[in-house]
Design a binder for these strands. Structure first.
Lengths: 345, 345
DNA sequence: CTGAAAGCGCTAACAG
DNA sequence: CTGTTAGCGCTTTCAG
């Protein structure tokens, strides 16, 4: 009754248990080729009663096909990438493809290493965050011979496919919206992450947009680690003590924006009459704040879905046919004005 | 100069490129056995210039060893599981082991299916959330012949190892703390997830604790989906309109608790003088709220670390030796009183 | 220190 | 519809 735990069952065990050749058992288990209903039945019951689980390692080696897709992201610590993953999962759910996630902590060398390890499983595709990689990483991506989708950001040149938004444009658009509402004395608050290229590009686009209107950022503050909500409070306080005349604060993400808003309201500051606010990301959280924070959606879920779809489409293609669907997708996020970006009548 | 993209390099390619036998190349690449510094050098340069990436599929098949660990969790949509994953990653970072994540959406059948797919890769271990599984899932876990760590919850019987907290106790402890502070008219607000066993157990422990003090929950409200912060507001409003005499609200997670707090403060309610509040999870977010919400840490990061450590220890062991380290770890979360659980002087 | 042979468990490609 | 034969790319084992 008890089977030794140390030897997993093989096709052969099932084959012997039901008196059908290994090959036919394999066919039944994969729904390949025609098998008579009778043998099919026999095989299925045998496999189930034995508790057989096929060995994909052997299967993939033999078939030279792997249903794994490498998904490489910088972090799991905010909701951004988990949401992307949810989109990826959603698309892959209807396919045999399976995402395998690697986390880089925003470190280029770790990204290189993670990619190397994932490629050693010969995945069917790679979804990787960002366009900035080490030379070695780029070389691996180019030589892997599988579809590669770089996600989140479209300000740059992809190795292959690309799905994301232009963070530079996002920053610029926000600058334009703020200027249009008549704000002129503007502060910027963001992360101190030299390796977060997307945050950097948003900042660049933002200053660009202001410059175009003849405005310069009046004060700026950067943070590192810790609770974003608490940091938002602290930084806002620090900045307003230093520059009390500001009439708008642009936060590089919604969480610090929310923290700033809570602090301002504690202080009895009139938002947005006295000071306007905007964040970035469009996180679900915002719906519960005392005022709806202005923001811009980063299209996280859609990016995950679209990237996964590109892999799905490409892996169905006959090796090196030209893909028919677009391989470079730039989504255009819209500004949500909320209640913190309109000058009061 | 250009290599055909469709055939990944093999050991043989490297072997030919440097005139060393495949076997020795393999040894060098794995740091196994003694190889002369000279050949070692030759092999390494050849491998690097060619851009060779070993094929783990073949390697694992041959060695009967897989450095993958299946991690099966219900969701990525709140910060709970990403934090567990961060703990897991942390521990595995110093080892050859690699987590592969599967998401079940709290659906037992999906859990079954995800586990089946992961087991087909013959992982070195399984880390799986919860103690409640379908019979088939339990059978698979039992028969897999690999270490299995069930995490998050310790109210029940594990298949093998277990790391978590007692959610029943967590609920009871919170009830006791609330009663001790003199609150008596208590409302409960939580999720409407019949499949979230841990939330259920907390609720049960909570009512148990109150009953023991001769108190009954006076009102309750459950929600489903949507922004937790916003739901917290809505539910709190609904409950207080229905039961204006409540003097304490226990929320099954910090996000809805935070929403409730924000709503109460908007209304000018005195917290905790008029109404006390508590949540659950100990999320980082809380640090930035206007009042620090009372809560109880779920030890997410530690759970991930400890679970991974069990796998690491066990995979170092000679097949079926008795593990020397504890295999059933119950962490004891502490209450953070914050500023919402103390009756004011 | 290095190499040759024999599989790991499965599937592709043919035969019947 | 079913079975047979070769490997997939690597590592184990055993000889030198």
């Amino acid at each position: 009754m008890t089977r030794p735990k140390h030897r997993p069952l093989t096709l052969r065990d099932v084959s012997e248990a039901c008196g059908v050749s290994e090959m036919t058992v394999s066919r039944v288990l994969r729904n390949r080729g025609d098998v008579s209903a009778a043998t099919r039945e026999k095989v299925l019951t045998a496999a189930k009663t034995l508790g057989y689980v096929p060995n994909q390692i052997a299967g993939s080696l033999a078939s030279q096909r792997v249903n794994l897709v490498a998904v490489i992201i910088p972090s799991l610590s905010n909701m951004v990438f988990p949401e992307v993953l949810t989109g990826v999962n959603k698309t892959f759910d209807d396919t045999p493809l399976q995402p395998v996630v690697g986390v880089t902590d925003y470190l280029p060398e770790k990204e290189e290493q993670v990619l190397y390890e994932m490629l050693s499983w010969r995945p069917s595709g790679v979804i990787i965050a960002g366009l900035e990689h080490t030379d070695a990483t780029q070389a691996m991506l180019r030589n892997a011979g599988i579809p590669v989708v770089e996600i989140m950001d479209t300000d740059g040149n992809p190795v292959d496919a690309m799905v994301g938004i232009s963070h530079r444009r996002a920053g610029r658009k926000m600058a334009e919206a703020i200027v249009k509402q008549g704000y002129t004395r503007i502060g910027f608050l963001g992360t101190k992450m030299p390796l977060d290229h997307r945050a950097r590009k948003r900042f660049e686009g933002f200053t660009e947009g202001l410059t175009h209107a003849g405005i310069e950022i009046e004060d700026r503050e950067f943070y590192n680690g810790g609770s974003a909500l608490a940091k938002g409070r602290e930084m806002t306080q620090a900045m307003l003590e230093r520059s009390p005349d500001l009439d708008f604060l642009y936060y590089s993400n919604d969480m610090i924006g929310a923290g700033g808003m809570l602090w301002l309201m504690d202080q009895g500051v009139d938002v947005p009459g006295q000071i306007g606010l905007a964040g970035f990301n469009g996180v679900e959280l915002l719906a519960g704040l005392p005022r709806q924070l202005a923001t811009m959606d980063a299209c996280r879920f859609e990016i995950g879905q679209a990237a996964a779809q590109i892999i799905v489409d490409r892996s169905a293609l006959p090796e090196d046919a030209e893909p028919q669907t677009p391989q470079q997708i730039t989504l255009a996020p819209k500004i949500t004005y909320g209640e913190t970006l309109r000058r009061r009548g």
